[in-house]
Amino acid sequence: MPLLDLDKITAGLSRTWAGFLRDWDRTLRSGNYPETTRYNYLLAAAQLARYLAEYSPDPDADAAADDPTEVDRAHVEAFQAWMIETRSAGTALNKHKALQQFFKWLLLDEEEIDRSPMDPVKQPKTPQKLVPVLPDAETTRVLATCKGKAFLQLRDEAIIRLYSTTGARGPTWWRSASQRRAGAPSSTRSYSAGSWRTSCGTLPRRWMPGTRRTRAWSSTRRRASRR
């Protein structure tokens, strides 16, 4: 079953809103946008329309609920604040970015509006969430399960120590720029390896620095590649 059901997304919207969203989806499809991107874009616009029709405290929101070209800055800011209160700042930020694209399309492609109502609306601030690091005792216990000289054991221990040495998050080998600028202390930085299953089990989120065993594993790999 496809993710994007346009009939479901536009259900209950005015004919004008539904028509614009169908036209926008056609433009997105012609631009080869992924289905997930199209879904998120269209959903944000549809949610704005429903908010204006059902939840907006503004008595003058009826026109905007019927026609997206009547949406103004106050409507968007009220919707954004409602998203923060009922969902989260992160969700509100995603809706903000999607609505930027919608009104940009209305402005540049359709020429239905003279100015985007998103222009004066600021993005919501999202607090940074730091992932607690794994205590050294737990890291040591995980490393103990990798003891041995077999290839898989050496490989897995090298992976663990690599993540510890680099403070990597998934395939990213450095801390994020925002963390570097913030200068967060090492005890609170978000060092995360995600979930990586190995012969040692699922790897935790912080590893110890590399040692002689890591170099031994690298030497084993180099010798094997020469054969």
Rank of each mutant, 00 (worst) to 15 (best):
D58N: 10
R50E: 07
K104I: 07
A44P: 02
S218G: 14
A64T: 06
Q47E: 08
G19K: 09
T91C: 06
S116W: 00
V142Y: 03
H75A: 03
M208N: 12
Y33M: 14
G12H: 05
P124S: 06
A216S: 12
A46Y: 02
L162Q: 08
T188H: 15
C200M: 09
L108W: 09
P68H: 01
R215G: 13
P34Y: 14
S56E: 00
T69F: 07
G31N: 14
Y163D: 05
S164D: 12
F79N: 04
P124Y: 03
K129A: 14
P68E: 06
T139E: 00
Q153D: 14
H96Y: 01
E85I: 09
R197E: 15
E54S: 13
M83Y: 09
L152Y: 10
A46S: 02
E111N: 10
R22H: 07
G194S: 08
W173C: 13
L6H: 08
P68N: 02
Y33D: 12
P132R: 00
I9D: 06
W24D: 04
F151M: 12
E138P: 05
A193Y: 07
E157R: 14
A98H: 00
D58C: 05
W17V: 07
A216L: 14
E35L: 04
P209Y: 07
E85F: 06
D60S: 10
E70W: 10
L162F: 10
P59D: 07
E157I: 06
S199C: 15
T16E: 13
S218T: 13
S192H: 15
G90I: 02
V142H: 05
R226D: 08
S218P: 11
P132L: 04
Y51P: 01
V131I: 13
G148T: 09
T27M: 12
Q80T: 10
A89Q: 09
T202Y: 12
S195T: 15
R29Y: 12
A61V: 01
T139F: 01
N32D: 13
V121Y: 07
W217R: 06
A11F: 11
A158P: 04
F20C: 12
A158E: 02
R189P: 10
